[in-house]
Amino acid sequence: MAKQTIEITVNGDRYEVAIDPWRSLAEVLREDLRLTGTKIGCNQGDCGACTVLINGRSVSSCLTLAVEAHQREVTTIEGLAKSPQELHPIQEAFVEKGAVQCGFCTGGMIMSAKQLLDKNPQPTETEIRQGLSGNLCRCTGYNKIVEAIGDAARRLAPAGEGK
């Protein structure tokens, strides 16, 4: 069976790759584009470590066929910080609040947090917990992650809003 050529924009960079149509977006990101920040924890859509944004929506990249991302905009964990010096506020909050331990779930967790805050800039604790329910973490017990996202929401709020 023939390979299909896809064009995808990942973190603002355009790529053209010829791939087997059955391969997942997670595999193509990791193996072809060498963007290994997207992790495969279960390859079954249950753990969330492979979460990326496609046109701004969070998806499990292990269950997404790469061909379905053709001509779409993909954002991975590598694309979130403006520069190595300037982290995204969610990333800063994760660092400072101790929301990272082994780090394997972290990238996917942050992408889910990004999706959540994009849709709901001032979430309640319950809403944060719901927003993270597709991302498993075995190290932290989630509390520091929840705290970090609350903190990031405050950092992201325009002056005068939130608290």
């Binding site: 990791r30 060498r34 780090g103 990238g107």
Partner: peptide, 23 residues
Amino acid sequence: ASIPRLDARQKVTGQALYTDDLT
């Protein structure tokens, strides 16, 4: 002190390498 982990920046930016990331 509650100092942030020194490897946290690598981990939140997706740069931290795990074995399967190597080729």
